[in-house]
């Protein structure tokens, strides 16, 4: 596995660029749904020790809402869209046309709306990925949980943990113009998928 993670600076750049296009597509989709400008940072493409991944979203005991999708195709992996609890409530209020601060707990409809957002973002993201790599990838139906970040991230990390001690994460942070929403979008390729992606881009 060490070999797969042994990437040149150009290859890392290529991954970052794919992530950028994917996230840009997603941000546009989200922006159109909630009718607000969405900013995003340059995607972090990083190989990190598995146990430090929860720190990327504020530590393992931060309460977050996570929308999880499995990615099928030639380069399988996992997508996790994480929103801090406050952001998730704000987003739900926006989507449901309620006054901000109304939501204190997610009901069935709220969860469904957030899963749909996860779905749309993933679709937009993977579409861009396809345009770049010509590897077609399909998302599963989404699943949602509101819990501690560490617990939610477990789902993607155990899989990687079986293959090594490090995780390659492609992560983008979204920010709404009024600071009400920030979210983290993670694409975590399965062990073995990274090689497929890299060779599809054809960067040495």
């Amino acid at each position: 596995m060490t070999d797969e993670y042994d990437l040149t600076p150009n290859q890392l750049d290529a991954l970052r660029e794919i992530g950028n296009v994917g996230a840009g597509n997603s941000a546009t989709a989200l922006s159109q749904i909630i009718n607000k400008r969405i900013d995003m940072n340059v995607p972090k493409v990083a190989l990190v020790p598995i146990e430090t991944v929860p720190d990327l979203v504020g530590g393992p005991d931060t309460i977050v809402v996570g929308v999880f999708l499995r990615v099928y195709g030639k380069a399988p992996g996992n997508i996790l869209f994480l929103l801090p609890q406050k952001s998730a409530f704000y987003l739900v209020d926006t989507l449901m046309g309620r006054e901000h601060g109304t939501t204190k707990k997610l009901d069935f409809m709220d969860e469904s709306a957030l899963m749909e957002i996860g779905n749309i973002l993933s679709g937009a993201y993977l579409n861009a990925f396809f345009n770049f790599t010509h590897i077609s990838m399909l998302p599963s139906i989404p699943a949602l949980a509101m819990d501690m970040a560490g617990a939610i991230l477990n789902v993607v990390l155990v899989q990687l943990g079986q293959m090594g001690d490090r995780a390659m994460v492609i992560e983008t942070e979204f920010l709404a113009e009024d600071d009400g929403i920030n979210g983290h979008f993670f694409l975590v390729p399965d062990p073995g998928s990274l090689g497929t992606l890299i060779s599809a881009v054809g960067v040495e």
């Binding site: 819990d147 560490g150 617990a151 991230l153 477990n154």
Partner: peptide, 13 residues
């Protein structure tokens, strides 16, 4: 003792 050991955010772990 009297130390306490803590681990945060266990899911499937």
């Amino acid at each position: 003792g009297p130390s306490k050991l803590i681990s945060y955010g266990l899911g499937s772990c």
